[in-house]
Design a binder for these strands. Structure first.
Lengths: 123, 123
DNA sequence: CTGCATCCCGTGGGATACTG
DNA sequence: CAGTATCCCACGGGATGCAG
């Protein structure tokens, strides 16, 4: 169980990566340029955006097309694999939204239980 | 898009957390004790396992039941919410396994393209 | 415009030792 | 047995500045 070579350990996409998912969303309905991605992704620095794009490109989720022009123009687009991943993530997102209320309720209950425990200790 | 209060940002579960997913797997077919979790999760330290379990408990994914005995006994079990998340993660895992070959191929192609670019620059 | 270089920092996660 | 207490480090990610 959970051995070294386990395929689950090799799970390719780190949807934990802070911006990867948002990039997929931004590319969902068509190719976008580097600067077009920076707009909706408020707060992302060029360095981090580049890293994210490189990782997605490396894993075959997006393509990078550089046009030899001045000023430079580069377009990023989803591959079939990327679209497949996007669909997967969409399902995850729907799960999250559907269950968010329960999670929030659980957190509140947890906090309350803690507070009660503290009261009991103090009293 | 991607505003502050966006529910997607509040996505409750960090499946990126290194051990959280494995814990769910370990609890999938019944409650387990702390020490019973440490066995399959080779390499996890008690501190980190505790942190992971606390986070899952806080979010309502698992329950923690402490029996007042000597020696101490504590059992962790999935909640309905946890089982739901487990099912979600199972789907993610199946996607990953199904698409792993493609990702690996993409990585190799990416490396080859890089090597070729270097050769071109040098020559 | 599209990045790369550099520096920096918080935090997730690990090692080790100790306790009720 | 089931943790807690400390210490520590790598690394993801951010800020800033520069270059082709």
């Amino acid at each position: 169980m959970f051995a070294e070579g386990c395929p689950s350990s090799a799970v390719p996409i780190r949807i934990g990566e802070k911006w990867a998912g948002m990039v997929l969303v931004c590319l969902a309905d068509g190719p976008r340029r580097f600067s077009e991605l920076k707009v909706p992704l408020r707060g992302v620095t060029p360095k981090v955006l580049t890293e994210t794009l490189r990782a997605l490109e490396r894993d075959g989720m997006i393509t990078r097309t550089a046009y030899d022009e001045m000023p430079p123009r580069v377009e990023y687009a989803l591959t079939d694999l990327g679209r497949s991943l996007f669909a997967m993530m969409h399902a995850c997102r729907e799960w999250a939204e559907a269950n968010l209320p329960d999670v929030l309720a659980a957190r509140e209950a947890y906090l309350d239980a803690q507070a009660e425990a503290r009261t009991r200790d103090a009293g």
